[in-house]
Structures are given as structure tokens and as C-alpha cells.
Amino acid sequence: MTHDEAIQQLSHLGRRRAFGRHVGSDRLIQAGLDALLAGVAPPRSPEEAARFLRERPPGERTD
């Protein structure tokens, strides 16, 4: 799995949860492991997370 595919998978699961759909813990754990192996690093601070959200292309924004 590539870095971008891992991000897409996490984003998809996040949207499902945001819309009230059930996402099993097995899928969340697998997505987290896939992301870790693909080199996806979580933001280290709230400021870094906010910067990441501001820098995403407009088509990927969810806010």
C-alpha cells in the first residue's frame, strides 16, 4: 500500500464514522497498521494538524 492509498483509506473510514456508520475495530487497527507501514506519520501537535488541513487541495477538504 502506498502512502496516498493509506491516507485515502483512513479518510474513507473517518467519513464513514462521521456519518454515523459503524467501522469495526478490526478495520481501524488494520488501517492504522497499513498507514504506519506506508510511512504515514500523525501530526505531532494541534498546530501541525491545523496546518495540514489548511494545506490540503480544495477537493480534499472536509471542513
Rank of each mutant, 00 (worst) to 15 (best):
S11T: 15
Q8Y: 11
R44H: 09
P57E: 09
G14N: 11
G14C: 10
R56I: 13
A49S: 11
A49H: 11
M1W: 05
D26M: 05
L36K: 12
R56K: 10
S45M: 02
R15A: 11
D63S: 15
T2M: 05
H22T: 10
P57F: 06
R61G: 04
T62N: 11
S11G: 15
R44I: 08
Q9F: 07
L53T: 07
H22W: 03
R17Y: 05
L53G: 02
M1L: 13
V23Q: 06
H12A: 14
A31H: 06
L28K: 03
A49P: 01
A38R: 00
L28V: 05
D34E: 14
R61K: 15
A35P: 01
R56C: 08
G32C: 04
L53P: 00
A6P: 04
E48G: 04
G20C: 06
F19K: 13
L37G: 04
A31M: 09
F52D: 10
E47N: 07
L36W: 07
Q30D: 12
A50G: 10
T2V: 09
P46M: 06
V40T: 05
G39I: 04
R61C: 03
V23Y: 06
F52C: 11
R44F: 05
F19P: 00
S25E: 12
G14L: 08
M1K: 12
L53D: 09
Q8I: 07
G32P: 00
G20N: 05
I29W: 00
D34V: 08
A50Y: 06
L36S: 13
A6N: 03
R51S: 10
A50W: 06
D34K: 06
R54Y: 00
G59W: 14
R16S: 07
G24H: 08
R21W: 11
A31I: 10
P57G: 09
R15T: 12
D26Q: 12
H3Q: 07
L37S: 12
E48I: 10
A35S: 03
F52M: 14
E47Q: 14
R51G: 04
R51M: 11
R21G: 08
R17T: 13
S45N: 06
R16G: 01
D63E: 14
P46Q: 04
R44T: 12
Q9I: 12
S11W: 05
V40Y: 00
R51T: 12
R54G: 00
A38E: 00
D63L: 15
V40E: 03
Q9L: 15
R17P: 01
G14F: 02
S25M: 12
L10D: 03
A35N: 01
P43Q: 08
R44L: 14
A18K: 11
A49W: 07
Q8A: 15
G39V: 04
S25N: 12
A18P: 00
R15F: 06
E48H: 08
G32R: 03
